[in-house]
């Protein structure tokens, strides 16, 4: 491939910003968690692009760590969503703004 490395980084930046918009604008917690996944995936894409441009395997190793972190984060986050739904009968993030146990 003769595509410059910047294009891959631009793609990562675009995906990251779309995910950030989703986290900021949506109030459904499931959608917010999905947007966080998009952001993590974009960060991993930036690592892979950097590793590919230098021809080293370090970027791929970092992506594996991001993957394991995303798995742990999603499991805890989804458990929190279930707890939120059991308490408030909704998945609206605003319903949990009181923090009164």
């Amino acid at each position: 491939m003769t595509i410059p490395m910047e294009y891959g980084l631009w793609l990562a930046a675009i995906l990251f910003c779309i995910g950030l918009t989703g986290v900021l604008a949506r109030r459904d917690v499931i959608f917010m968690l999905m947007s966080v996944e998009v952001m993590l995936n974009a960060a991993g894409l930036a690592f892979i692009v950097g590793g590919a441009a230098r021809g080293s395997a370090d970027g791929q190793v970092m992506f594996i760590f991001i993957l394991s972190m995303a798995a742990a984060e999603v499991s805890v986050g989804l458990a929190l969503i279930i707890q939120l739904y059991q308490k408030f009968k909704t998945v609206d993030a605003d319903s949990a703004s009181q923090l009164n146990g």
Binding site: M1, T2, I3, P4, M5, E6, Y7, G8, L9, W10, A13, V49, G51, A52, A53, R54, G55, S56, A57, Q60
Partner: peptide, 14 residues
Amino acid sequence: LMRPASHPMTSPVI
């Protein structure tokens, strides 16, 4: 990222 395009994304398969 607006630099003159530097590294091509060469792909030696790792």
